[in-house]
Every structure is written in structure tokens, then in C-alpha cells.
């Protein structure tokens, strides 16, 4: 069983690497946010799997919190790129897409 968990963990870590490449090369800011969001989903799976790999399923609580934080973080990052701060509604027309 440990072997299966280890293989799945390795697969997810590899995939996180691929996702990181996308978040670095972009080219648009949305590609980067999409990559980071996807990275977050994989982190949730990774935390759950590592919990079972090390025989401590309590890690699931962390995964739960992370799943929710990831969503909020994505929305916040998107809003930040749009408005430049998290509370204001300033509308800059000359924003950078790349």
C-alpha cells in the first residue's frame, strides 16, 4: 500500500513541477493564476496522500483548510491584478495583460 501512496505522491510532485513551469513562462497573468490555482488543488491532494503515506490521516484537516484557502486566494489574486488593491474599485484602462 505504501508503494501506491508513494507512486501517487511522486506523480503529483512531478505534475506540480509542470504546473510551476507554466506559472513561470506565463505568458498572460491569467495563465499564471490558473497555474497557481491548479497547483493549489494538487497541494490538497499531496497533503492528503502524504498524511496516509506517513500514517497520520490527521493531515486531512490541513487539506480541508487548504482547499478553501486556495479558492479564496485565487479570487483575491485575480481581484488584485484587476484593481491593484483588494478593497478598491479603481478602473485602470491601461493595465498590463502580460
Amino acid at each position: 500500500m505504501t508503494g501506491v501512496f508513494a507512486a501517487a505522491t511522486a506523480a503529483i510532485v512531478v505534475c506540480m513541477g509542470l504546473t510551476l513551469i507554466r506559472s513561470i513562462v506565463g505568458p498572460t497573468v491569467f495563465d499564471r493564476i490558473l497555474a497557481v490555482n491548479s497547483f493549489g488543488t494538487k497541494t490538497v491532494l499531496l497533503i492528503a496522500l502524504i498524511g496516509y503515506l506517513s500514517g497520520r490521516p490527521d493531515f486531512l484537516d490541513l487539506a480541508l483548510v487548504y482547499a478553501l484557502m486556495n479558492f479564496i486566494g485565487t479570487i483575491a489574486a485575480m481581484k488584485f491584478t484587476r484593481f491593484g488593491d483588494l478593497a478598491g474599485m479603481e478602473d485602470e484602462e491601461s493595465e498590463e495583460l502580460y
Partner: peptide, 26 residues
């Protein structure tokens, strides 16, 4: 289940790199 799930996760990662524009990467 776990192993085939890992395969799909990897396919998603490959697609994220391979597809040509933002909307297809979604």
C-alpha cells in the same frame, strides 16, 4: 483508483504545458 487518478493529474499537467492558449489550458 489512486494510480489512475495520478495518471489523470499528470495528463492535466501535460495539457497545461502543451495547449496553445489560456482558454484551452483551462
Amino acid at each position: 483508483f489512486i494510480l489512475s487518478g495520478s495518471i489523470f493529474v499528470i495528463i492535466g499537467g501535460i495539457g497545461l504545458l502543451r495547449l496553445p492558449d489560456f482558454y484551452t489550458r483551462i
